[in-house]
Amino acid sequence: MANNKSSKKRVEIAERNRLQNKSYKSALRTLMKRCFTACSAYAEKPGDDAKATVQSSMNAAFSKIDKAVKRGVLHRNNGAHQKSRLTEAVKKAIEPAATAS
């Protein structure tokens, strides 16, 4: 338990930061999941609307990843790894559909 005023304040600040980081990571996971679902939907039924959905969900996820790295919620290598995963999934979904069309 914290003994003096400054250590009590540090505990409060750490808890505040933990909750903010948790919220950021949760939003990030949601956006990434949304992008993966859009990719699988596009792979099943290709179309212009589905392709636009994939692109917009990927852009939103990229933006959130970059902001999380900037804020220090994610390490930059972790951010790069997540962006790489998304890019790979999008390419895998779009390229076979493009060759089939």
Rank of each mutant, 00 (worst) to 15 (best):
A38L: 01
G47N: 04
Y24C: 14
S26K: 15
R10W: 10
L31T: 05
A43T: 11
E88V: 12
A52Y: 05
K64G: 00
M32E: 07
K92E: 03
R16I: 06
A80M: 10
C39R: 03
K33D: 10
A89V: 04
N4D: 14
A89D: 02
A80C: 07
A89T: 05
M1H: 09
K51Y: 06
K33A: 10
N3K: 14
R29I: 12
A61I: 01
A27I: 12
L19A: 13
N21K: 15
A97R: 07
T87Q: 12
Q20G: 09
R10A: 15
K9N: 12
S26M: 14
R34A: 13
S26G: 14
G79T: 07
V54I: 02
H75N: 10
Q55M: 13
S57Y: 05
C35F: 00
P46Y: 05
M58K: 10
T87M: 12
V11C: 07
T37W: 01
C39V: 01
P46V: 04
I94H: 00
G47T: 01
A98V: 10
R10P: 12
R29H: 13
E15I: 10
N17L: 15
L86R: 02
V69W: 08
L74W: 02
F62M: 01
N21R: 14
S56Q: 14
N4P: 05
C35S: 07
V90Y: 02
S40N: 09
A68P: 00
N3M: 12
A80I: 09
L86I: 09
K83E: 08
T30Q: 11
M32G: 06
K8A: 15
F62I: 04
L19R: 15
L19C: 08
D48W: 00
S84A: 14
L28W: 05
S63P: 00
N3A: 13
A98L: 06
Q55P: 04
F62P: 00
T37M: 04
A93D: 02
K25S: 13
S63C: 00
A27Y: 13
I94D: 03
L74M: 04
M1V: 12
A61E: 03
A50V: 04
